[in-house]
């Protein structure tokens, strides 16, 4: 799935378009010097605000009464009244884009949250304990990585029906292994470091060492991958909608709006696929830019380093 593709994105060289960092500078401040990341974050903020404030901002009701007068408004091209035109039921597309952001972002964020939680727990456990625990957990992640998530999602939807819940659960299940691998690799290398040895020597419990000493050092990397899962999940939702496996109506989602008019390219109603497509493109692009910026910050090594040994770029060494 797309998530894996964006995983490779993080194996990227830095893209710092700003001055080199001073050690000890707070992360947010460093992020603000990453121009593209700032652009991405701003776009995301605008989109998120648009989605949150949709009830206030939307010029038309999102769920109007579909009577004859309403239906007669269908297929109106973009105009000053309907900025993005109207759809097949005469509904305002701009209104639906605003509301659709809620669903698309909700899916992206919940999948990322769930995948990060599971991935971090599994990766930390495997990296910390090592030995057979590690081997067993890593084989489980292998197992989930070899079965295509998109196919499983479609099979699940066939058996369980359309619902946002099914999409979120299955996408989370197929996204966490990548994060688990990355976290495990980081924990493995951190475990050998002096400060961890020192903490253990003072008699701190394993729980304390992991939560107080190890995880804070991995948070940067985890955040990077979590942002990429957000983008991957939004793209996966649209791919599913294209294959007729979507969210139930009347919930507007960008993927569903885009897929619903997939046949209109090259005709007078092509605007119906331009706007939701742009919304998806813009959101995922913004998320990826922020992730890219975060990656630069999370990497304390010299500029231009490739993070060999992180899970998505190459397989963990053993």
């Amino acid at each position: 799935m797309t998530i894996v593709d964006s995983g490779a994105l993080t194996a990227d060289g830095e893209d710092r378009a700003a001055r080199p960092l001073k050690p000890g500078e707070p992360a947010w401040k460093r992020l603000t010097h990453h121009r593209l990341a700032v652009v991405g974050a701003t776009v995301l903020l605008v989109l998120a605000l648009g989605a949150l404030l949709a009830p206030v901002l939307a010029p038309y009701p999102v769920d109007p009464l579909l009577d004859r007068a309403q239906l007669a408004q269908r297929f109106q091209p973009p105009s000053s009244q309907h900025w993005f035109g109207t759809d097949d039921l005469g509904r305002d597309v701009f209104t639906r884009i605003l509301w659709g952001g809620r669903v698309s972002l909700l899916i992206g964020i919940s999948v990322a949250a769930a995948a990060t939680a599971i991935g971090t727990a599994v990766g930390t456990t495997a990296g910390w304990f090592g030995g057979w625990v590690d081997e067993a957990l890593m084989r489980c992640t292998d197992l989930l990585l070899v079965i295509p998530g998109l196919a499983v999602l479609m099979i699940a939807q066939h058996g369980l029906g359309e619902s946002t819940g099914v999409i979120v659960v299955v996408l989370s299940l197929s996204s966490w292994p990548t994060i688990a691998r990355v976290v495990r690799a980081e924990i493995l290398s951190l475990r050998q470091r002096e400060f961890v040895e020192a903490a253990r020597a003072t008699g701190a419990s394993a729980w304390r060492v992991v939560t107080r000493h190890l995880l804070p050092n991995v948070v940067g990397t985890i955040t990077v991958y979590a942002t990429l899962v957000v983008g991957g999940a939004i793209l996966a939702e649209s791919a599913l909608a294209f294959l007729d496996f979507g969210l139930p109506a009347p919930t507007p989602s960008w993927g569903k709006m885009l897929a619903g008019f997939k046949g209109s390219s090259g005709t007078s109603t092509a605007y119906l696929i331009y706007f939701p497509g742009l919304a998806i493109l813009l959101t995922v692009l913004a998320v990826n830019l922020v992730g890219n910026g975060l990656r630069d910050i999370a990497d304390p090594r010299h500029p231009g380093s490739v993070r060999r040994g992180d899970g998505a770029s190459s397989r963990p060494r053993r």
Binding site: S6, S238, G255, L258, G277, I280, L281, L285, N288
Partner: peptide
């Protein structure tokens, strides 16, 4: 590259 990675492939 960033744009290509952020686009639904069917689109």
């Amino acid at each position: 590259s960033f744009v290509a990675l952020s686009m639904p492939s069917f689109w």
